[in-house]
Amino acid sequence: MKMRICCTTCPNECELDVEIDENKKILSATGNKCPRGLAFAEKEVVDPVRVLASTVKVDNGAHNALLPVRTKEAIPLRYHFEVMHQLEQMEVSAPIQMGDVILPNVCDTGVDVIASRNIR
């Protein structure tokens, strides 16, 4: 099977044309300017991962009703709706510092959800 993949490792955004077999092993890949593209493609065809960004309610922010958050690293796309559901239940209180852990080890991925900004 043939697939077109956009490597998002760096701003070059190489577009790769990859061919995979029935076990999702890459047979050929073209279009990547560096080896990181191939590493990205290997992950992408098996279990795509993305950084998830969303918001969490703030109960006392001066100007801010919501705190923007994100997963510290990319997590499998298949967990994104589950994480959204968990974040929806949460409420946090200011003060908050950028980088504070809001939800640790989300879905047992070993990745934390962290605050994207300070809230006073």
Partner: peptide, 19 residues
Amino acid sequence: CIHPGFGLKYFKEELTGPE
């Protein structure tokens, strides 16, 4: 712009807009 994709060039890492 709470999504990631910022800063790859300037900060050399992927950040969200608020970060």
